[in-house]
Amino acid sequence: MSEVTEKHVLGLSGGRDSAALAVYMRQHYPELDIDYFFTDTGKELPEVYEFLGRLEGFLGKPILRLNPDRDFDFWLKQYNNFLPSPQTRWCTRQLKLRPFEHWLRPMLEEGKVIHSYVAIRADEEYREGYSSKHENLKVVLPFKQDGIDKPGVQDILEASGLGLPKYYDWRSRSGCTFCFYQQKIEWVRLKEQHPEAFEEAKAYEKDAVAHGSPFTWSQGESLDELTRPERVVQIKEDYERRLARLKAKRQDNPLREPSGDVDLDELYGQAKSCLACHK
């Protein structure tokens, strides 16, 4: 098949896995002309934009920004001021998938075969992040095919000189500042690291509740309740207990350098997440 009739694309979330896949494809498949893209919700962490800038430098080409034509505030009104939630993930659908489909549609209509590379690792169950609705859109899983697991992803980023995005110091995944998949300790840390973003999330929540939304950002309690001083103490103490238990039973892989790093997925168990946002 000629080059004219094929297209290669790779979506970046600002997270660890998709960045490592971009590096991996650049190093192992340099003959492929891949378009790297990022769908910007406008509500991302500042660390995400900083990391994408460094990644562009490594790749030697710009990362396309697929900005949605209508922002979070527009869609919030369309959904009657109800917050997105694990039950109704309209944010992923309208701010991530919709711009992606809009971008690809003309190419598919021209008859191009599009190969979309997705960063599902070899140690993960296959979770289909985008269910192709077109026979010419092919989802490719290089890490799955080549046996790259989570430590392998970290090795790729360290060897490239990029390392991890800075938000991994306090948060387990990328995505919007007010992502409802955050652990409670992450909400506490958001307030500490980016108080202005936390206050914005709290304002959205109060407005949603006033409009009858059944959801708060964090399951079972509002952000006001979650950040009361006594509650913050409880959340931090729970985190420390979990950390101590995990470190006590953890055994380092003898084939790898020992690491004291513990990410929150390891601590609380692999949380559900939106593949389009968090990989």
Score class of each variant (00 low, 15 high):
residue 5 T to Q: 15
residue 7 K to C: 07
residue 10 L to V: 09
residue 11 G to Y: 00
residue 12 L to N: 09
residue 13 S to H: 03
residue 14 G to F: 03
residue 17 D to S: 10
residue 19 A to P: 00
residue 19 A to L: 01
residue 21 L to I: 05
residue 21 L to H: 06
residue 22 A to P: 01
residue 22 A to M: 05
residue 23 V to Y: 08
residue 25 M to Q: 11
residue 28 H to D: 03
residue 30 P to L: 03
residue 30 P to H: 03
residue 31 E to P: 05
residue 33 D to E: 11
residue 36 Y to W: 02
residue 39 T to S: 15
residue 41 T to C: 06
residue 42 G to P: 05
residue 43 K to Y: 14
residue 46 P to G: 00
residue 47 E to I: 02
residue 47 E to N: 06
residue 48 V to M: 04
residue 50 E to Y: 09
residue 54 R to W: 07
residue 55 L to A: 02
residue 59 L to N: 04
residue 63 I to F: 03
residue 63 I to L: 04
residue 66 L to W: 07
residue 66 L to E: 01
residue 67 N to I: 12
residue 70 R to S: 13
residue 71 D to Y: 04
residue 72 F to K: 10
residue 74 F to N: 01
residue 74 F to T: 08
residue 75 W to A: 00
residue 79 Y to D: 11
residue 80 N to C: 08
residue 81 N to W: 11
residue 83 L to N: 07
residue 83 L to A: 05
residue 83 L to H: 06
residue 86 P to L: 06
residue 86 P to T: 00
residue 90 W to R: 03
residue 91 C to T: 06
residue 96 K to W: 01
residue 96 K to S: 04
residue 97 L to H: 12
residue 97 L to S: 11
residue 100 F to W: 08
residue 105 R to C: 02
residue 108 L to A: 10
residue 109 E to V: 08
residue 110 E to P: 05
residue 111 G to H: 04
residue 112 K to I: 02
residue 117 Y to L: 00
residue 118 V to K: 04
residue 120 I to L: 14
residue 122 A to T: 09
residue 126 Y to V: 14
residue 129 G to F: 06
residue 132 S to Q: 06
residue 132 S to G: 09
residue 133 K to S: 14
residue 134 H to N: 15
residue 135 E to A: 13
residue 135 E to W: 13
residue 136 N to G: 10
residue 136 N to I: 07
residue 138 K to Y: 08
residue 141 L to S: 09
residue 142 P to W: 07
residue 145 Q to C: 08
residue 146 D to A: 14
residue 147 G to W: 07
residue 148 I to G: 01
residue 150 K to H: 12
residue 153 V to I: 14
residue 156 I to W: 02
residue 156 I to S: 02
residue 161 G to V: 05
residue 164 L to E: 04
residue 166 K to E: 15
residue 171 R to G: 00
residue 173 R to P: 01
residue 174 S to V: 09
residue 175 G to M: 04
residue 176 C to A: 00
residue 177 T to W: 12
residue 178 F to Q: 14
residue 182 Q to W: 00
residue 182 Q to A: 11
residue 183 Q to H: 14
residue 183 Q to G: 07
residue 186 E to I: 01
residue 187 W to P: 11
residue 188 V to W: 00
residue 191 K to Q: 12
residue 191 K to Y: 14
residue 191 K to T: 02
residue 193 Q to C: 10
residue 193 Q to V: 09
residue 195 P to W: 03
residue 197 A to G: 09
residue 197 A to P: 08
residue 198 F to H: 02
residue 199 E to L: 13
residue 200 E to K: 15
residue 200 E to L: 15
residue 202 K to E: 11
residue 203 A to M: 13
residue 213 S to V: 10
residue 213 S to P: 11
residue 215 F to W: 15
residue 216 T to C: 13
residue 218 S to W: 01
residue 218 S to R: 03
residue 223 L to K: 03
residue 224 D to A: 07
residue 224 D to V: 11
residue 226 L to P: 07
residue 227 T to V: 12
residue 228 R to H: 10
residue 231 R to E: 12
residue 234 Q to M: 11
residue 234 Q to K: 12
residue 235 I to T: 04
residue 238 D to F: 10
residue 242 R to K: 13
residue 243 L to V: 07
residue 244 A to M: 05
residue 244 A to I: 09
residue 247 K to W: 06
residue 247 K to S: 04
residue 250 R to Q: 10
residue 250 R to A: 10
residue 252 D to I: 10
residue 254 P to M: 02
residue 257 E to I: 12
residue 258 P to E: 00
residue 261 D to C: 07
residue 262 V to A: 05
residue 269 G to M: 10
residue 269 G to K: 08
residue 271 A to C: 11
residue 277 C to I: 05
residue 279 K to E: 13
residue 279 K to H: 15
